[in-house]
Nucleic acid binder design. Structure first.
Length: 550
DNA sequence: CTGGGGATGGGGCCC
DNA sequence: TGGGCCCCATCCCCA
């Protein structure tokens, strides 16, 4: 019994010792971790302080630059600011001010809207820029053949730089593509805004062949196909004709005195290399093919230089005007769903459809066309989009109405929605909303467009040209509307207000998303667990949190 | 006056 | 929330 008591006592003492040891161990561990944690916090706080100091310095710099920018010669300062923001250490030769083209609006979207408010700058060259070969409308400060060497150098350099970007393997250079192009542009921007635009325009309208398109393309004297419906010029196989430029040929007289320009010539398919190496200059190759696709519609005007075209026979029945050959059109791989065949009858009988419909028969060799074949699921998607747009157009037609009897007589009615237009061409363009026909193809990607201007605007995606600069910050935009929208960031303007709550938004889409909160609509379902969300961003966050390991 | 074509703006979707 | 970019329509200029 006594032994038992002693044993218990010993056990208890051992237990106590062990417990004390464990507690002290735990305390030690906690203390260590706490110390480490404190250390980390201290370091983080130090980093925060450093970052805050940097931020303050940057804000100070920004404020100083803003003050300077509000003074005359703001463009110079802003450009210098932009250059600094991009890490450029110097600002070169900013002696040319932004020159706005007089009269005819030829710059279009490529016209930077950051204007020289000061105008104290001596404008050395007042240029009314037209495409290099825009025909009789060309207005240039210099006489033909008089090439400013610096001007030329800049243009060639830029063309080469831009093209080097455009032709590199997108998979390897994509991340820097736009940036580098933008940088290139900005590098020259302050110095040669006008030159930049000249280059842009020349790139867009390459070719200095002063022969008319009709002559070059074997068309009739009016620049139109010889006979309605007999043959149409279509963008397509580059082996038939190609555009070449000889920036280094030295024979300026032959190519319109501008080495940067291109001309159309017959190419020997055997000698014509394929692929990107064929086009070592932006002024040929893709850009010309772009021009070709842009101006390949119907009658070509004098802007259709440098086309890569082929002639495609169009079925004509009797004396009837040529109609949409939907079969061939769709069959050429530009189909956007077999359901379009439903339109055939109406199109063929629709007198409103212009007789020079832009049959967009993409060449068989065009990778674009093959990527949009009828069997492609993409075609289904596009067709759905067309259906959607049809609904939109119908709704608009119902809303805006039969515009007949308006201030302008709109006697040309859309076959599909009865909307009225003043001329057949407008109807034709409009009807592409219903038919899904997109005659303007980008040569650098799969995109097709119903309107030439949209293609032109789209090309900035590839060139990186962003002509619309924010006056408040270094941001630049490819589209005017984007700049306008962006400026709300600075103004704080939020024009889209919720009717259900005080929330306001700077973008219509954001309000639309927000409204789902009130309606209870949850259109975004998680594919993993089925949980539904009112906004896509919520779904994304949910998936990242819950299913990121999947 | 009309038609053709480019420029441009608003709307919308997506990331 | 901000930006990229496409769609569609209208405006405007010019021949």
């Amino acid at each position: 019994m006594a032994d038992c008591m002693v044993f218990h006592t010993q056990i208890a003492s051992i237990m106590e010792v062990l417990a004390n040891a464990a507690v002290s161990e735990i305390c030690k561990l906690v203390d260590d971790d706490y110390a480490v944690f404190r250390l980390e916090i201290t370091q983080t706080q130090k980093e925060n302080r450093a970052l805050r100091r940097k931020l303050q310095l940057f804000e100070l710099k920004m404020a100083r630059e803003r003050v300077l920018a509000s003074r005359p010669n703001s463009v110079k300062i802003l450009d210098r600011y932009r250059a600094m923001a991009r890490g450029e250490g110097h600002f070169t030769k900013g002696h040319r001010s932004f020159v706005k083209p007089g009269g005819h609006n030829t710059w279009g979207d490529d016209q930077p809207i950051t204007v020289d408010e000061g105008s104290g700058i001596t404008t050395q060259h007042i240029i009314e820029i037209e495409p290099a070969d825009a025909g009789p409308g060309v207005k240039q400060e210099r006489s033909e053949g008089e090439e400013d060497p610096r001007h030329s150098r800049v243009k060639q350099t830029r063309a080469a730089e831009v093209h080097s970007v455009a032709t590199e393997d997108p998979a390897t250079v994509q991340p820097r593509t736009q940036r580098s192009v933008t940088e290139v542009r900005d590098r020259h921007k302050s110095e040669t805004d006008t030159e930049t635009l000249t280059v842009t325009q020349r790139l867009l309208h390459t070719g200095s062949d002063h022969r008319s398109d009709a002559e070059r393309l074997g068309l009739g004297p009016l620049g139109c196909p010889p006979a309605p419906g007999s043959e149409y010029l279509l963008y397509g196989n580059p082996s038939m004709r190609a555009v070449n430029s000889h920036p280094d040929s030295g024979d300026a007289s032959e190519i319109g005195n501008d080495p940067s320009c291109s001309y159309a010539t017959e190419m020997d398919p055997g000698n014509m290399r394929l692929g990107l190496e064929t086009h070592t200059d932006l002024s040929r190759g893709n850009w010309n093919r772009y021009s070709g696709s842009v101006y390949s519609e119907g009658c070509l005007d004098e802007k259709g230089e440098g086309l890569v075209v082929e002639e495609v026979t169009v079925k004509v029945e009797g004396d009837d005007p040529p109609t949409w050959n939907v079969d061939s059109h769709l069959g050429d791989g530009h189909s956007q769903g077999g359901d379009f065949l439903d339109y055939r009858g109406s199109l063929e009988t629709n007198q409103n459809v212009a007789t020079h419909s832009p049959l967009h028969a993409l060449g068989d060799h065009d990778p674009v066309s093959t990527s949009m074949g009828p069997s492609d699921s993409h075609g289904r998607i596009l067709f759905d989009q067309v259906l959607k747009s049809n609904d939109r157009a119908r709704a608009q037609a119902l809303g805006e109405g039969e515009t007949l009897g308006g201030s302008k007589e709109k006697r040309f009615l859309c076959r599909f929605c009865n909307k009225g237009f003043s001329c057949p061409q407008k109807v034709e363009i409009h009807q592409r909303v219903h038919t899904g026909v997109k005659p303007f193809s980008c040569t650098q990607c799969h995109m097709c467009f119903a309107q030439a201007g949209n293609l032109k605007r789209h090309q900035r995606v590839h060139t990186g040209v962003k002509p619309f600069s924010c006056t408040q910050c270094p941001m630049c935009f490819a589209q005017a509307g984007d700049l306008k929208r962006h400026q709300r960031v600075h103004t704080g303007e939020k024009p889209y207000s919720c009717t259900q709550c005080p929330m306001r938004f700077a973008q219509a889409g954001h309000l639309k998303m927000h409204l789902k909160v009130h309606t209870g609509e949850r259109p975004f379902a998680c594919t993993h667990c089925g949980k539904r969300f009112s906004e896509r961003s919520y779904l994304r966050i949910h998936q990242q949190k819950k299913h990121s390991t999947l």
